[in-house]
Amino acid sequence: MKKLIINHQSVPAIGLGTWHMGDNPQTRKNEISAIQAGLNAGARVIDTAEMYGAGRSESLVGEAIRDYSRETLFLISKVLPSNASIGRLEKSLDASLKRLQTDYLDLYLYHWRGTTPLAETVAELDRLTHTGKIRAWGVSNFDYVDMQELLQLPAGQNVAANEDLYNLGSRGTEVRLQAWQEAHQIPFIAYSPVGAGDSLGANMTASPAVQAVAERHQVSTYQVLLAWAIRNPNILVIPQTSDPSHAEANVLAGNLTLTKKDLIELDQAFPKPTSEPPLAIL
């Protein structure tokens, strides 16, 4: 199973996303089972955020991981821009920890840029790494220019990851950002690696090229999309599903290595942009 290093820890390159989970009491049992199925299949990373369901996603994760050894997990959550000031950030973190039923996060991300000065948010995130409540901090929805600015700050070099939208049909971060992050040893976390239940996701799975690759390897089209997204060693993907069997299959896609022929066909069907587009954000 492919792995990468985040904050000196080796983790499988396919983790578990939780956006849109925890909102519906009728699907809660299945969602918990899906998280557990993913963990049982070999996943370590669970990605959530205080924004997801106004904390309900974090509470769901806390329930799902109750019987797992904390040391075997790599938990990521995110702070909203409105809570990213010196006066509010630690309180927000404490609330996330309580919902997750843990006393620390492995990685805490600034969800996207807001009105609080970046220097203030980064200084507070860095301070929190000395409290024991977070092991590392990072950012999300930052583009190349944002990352350049970040690294100029006094504690900016301590950034442990950046999480952006990335999949076969949305490749803008390949133009500059991904290579730059790899050169600076900053892991890239890809959200919505198989789309987000939208037309793009449907277009990718319906693509004759994707289907042909899936048929050759006797895997699902989703597994092809995930294997493609982690073909480079600096990328972690966090697909979300509420279906336990789908969650297991997602994680097992980490064992699939695409051939040169596969990659050429997929590249021809969904070419990398020739110039850098605005950062794609959901």
Results as ranks from 00 to 15, higher is better:
87 G>P: 00
212 A>W: 00
19 W>Q: 12
164 D>R: 02
38 G>W: 08
109 L>Y: 08
225 L>E: 05
53 G>F: 02
239 P>H: 09
201 G>S: 09
200 L>Q: 11
176 R>S: 03
276 E>I: 10
181 Q>Y: 08
124 E>R: 13
256 L>W: 07
52 Y>E: 14
125 L>D: 09
21 M>D: 05
133 K>W: 11
205 T>L: 04
161 A>W: 01
240 Q>H: 06
156 G>N: 04
124 E>K: 13
179 A>C: 06
240 Q>V: 13
2 K>S: 13
206 A>Q: 12
172 G>W: 08
275 S>C: 09
183 A>V: 03
164 D>G: 08
158 N>M: 12
71 E>F: 00
199 S>Y: 02
273 P>W: 05
30 N>T: 14
107 L>R: 04
67 D>Y: 04
235 I>C: 07
84 A>F: 06
146 D>S: 11
276 E>M: 13
194 V>K: 09
13 A>V: 14
173 T>L: 05
69 S>Q: 15
266 L>V: 12
10 S>W: 03
86 I>H: 13
200 L>W: 03
281 I>M: 10
232 N>W: 02
263 L>Q: 13
109 L>F: 11
274 T>C: 04
104 Y>Q: 14
129 T>E: 01
55 G>S: 06
185 Q>G: 07
212 A>R: 09
210 V>M: 06
238 I>S: 10
17 G>Q: 06
137 W>T: 02
66 R>F: 11
244 P>N: 07
102 T>G: 00
115 T>D: 15
270 F>I: 10
223 Q>C: 10
199 S>F: 04
275 S>Y: 04
53 G>D: 07
60 L>K: 08
220 S>H: 06
56 R>H: 15
262 D>E: 09
19 W>K: 08
198 D>S: 10
154 P>R: 09
50 E>Q: 14
182 E>C: 12
45 V>D: 07
190 A>S: 12
15 G>F: 02
34 A>T: 03
